[in-house]
């Protein structure tokens, strides 16, 4: 299989260079398309948006690929497992418990950090519960994940209606940050978290390649499976928190990006797949945002299109062959 894969993609670095070029073109288009007025205003304004988009693309792509490696499949993603909604649930829960005023007056760093910490704990618990006790049907996990998503969303909805309208306004600010209104300090915190998560993940990459051989083989080869999975989960939870805080739940984007990256990099090595996934994510998100926003004049359409294409992809993946 490895020989075949290497024949199919003889020069992974060439593919990466092409993807990088495409990503750069998309970014350039995003910065300059239809720019009217003073560059002093346009460049910082769009620069912030671009920064947020790149962060989100990075977070979603990396978290999905890592999660799929750990769970040994190509269908399950953190978003489909309801992790995005779990993050919103954590935020709502904190406002619910602390009260809107206390939550709003917390230092943004501390607040975001608290959200992320609770998120890491809950995600790890959920993961241990579902994946901890041996082999399990993949379909069951997907279905359970989807229903968990509904549960978290409904619980958040319920709590949002239970809290005071004034406190709800606080929450709304936290939940519905859009690219146009991302505050600079949130961007800084998000960048810091992503760098930290990446630093944890970087030394794991070669071990993750071994993990692709399956749990038993990996253990046999000397990989501490439990520890590696726990670390990866922390990274995934942090990345999901960042992306959800910046754009809200995005159900299928990770699935699309990860599977495109596997197609582009049939060598399966993380050092190749991860950059490819990130670059594809940037092309998709920045290019997609530059396209609809400037050409058609609206941007919600992007989320809807992703949902449509992602849903069809998921159906095809589900029905085409027995998933691993």
């Amino acid at each position: 299989m490895n020989n075949l894969a290497e024949r199919a993609a003889p020069r992974p670095w060439l593919v990466l260079a092409l993807l990088l070029a495409a990503a750069l073109v998309a970014m350039a288009l995003f910065m300059t398309l239809n720019a009217r007025g003073s560059w002093d205003f346009v460049l910082p304004f769009r620069g912030r948006k671009l920064w947020a988009l790149v962060l989100v693309a990075y977070a979603i792509a990396v978290s999905t690929v890592l999660f799929q490696t750990v769970t040994e499949n190509r269908i399950l993603t953190p978003a489909i497992m309801g992790f995005d909604f779990l993050y919103q649930f954590v935020q709502t829960g904190l406002v619910f418990i602390l009260g809107g005023f206390a939550y709003a007056t917390l230092d943004p760093m501390l607040r975001f950090g608290g959200d992320v910490l609770v998120m890491v704990g809950l995600a790890t618990l959920l993961f241990r519960w579902l994946f901890g006790t041996g082999a399990r049907s993949l379909h069951l996990l997907v279905l359970v994940g989807i229903v968990f998503g509904v549960l978290f969303r409904s619980l958040s909805g319920l709590m949002q209606r239970l809290i005071d309208p004034n406190e709800f306004v606080v929450l709304q600010d936290a939940l519905f940050a859009s690219f146009n209104t991302v505050p600079p300090e949130l961007l800084l915190v998000a960048t810091g978290l992503i760098v930290a998560a990446s630093l944890i993940a970087l030394p794991l990459l070669s071990r993750l390649d071994v993990l692709l051989l399956g749990r038993d083989t990996a253990t046999n080869l000397g990989v501490d499976h439990r520890r590696t999975v726990a670390l990866v989960l922390v990274v995934v939870a942090v990345l999901i928190s960042v992306s959800t805080a910046l754009v809200g739940p995005v159900l299928f984007f990770g699935l699309l990006v990860a599977n495109l990256a596997y197609l582009a990099m049939p060598g399966y090595r993380h050092i190749e797949v991860l950059p490819a996934a990130v670059l594809i994510g940037v092309v998709g998100l920045v290019g997609g945002q530059a396209g609809p926003e400037h050409v058609f004049g609206y941007n919600t359409a992007l989320a809807i299109i992703i949902e449509f294409v992602g849903g069809v992809t998921f159906l095809v993946l589900l029905l085409r062959k027995a998933p691993r």
Partner: peptide, 13 residues
């Protein structure tokens, strides 16, 4: 379990 999954995804599309 594939059956409800297919249904949910079809619904999503």
């Amino acid at each position: 379990l594939v059956v409800p999954l297919v249904g949910i995804m079809l619904g999503g599309v």
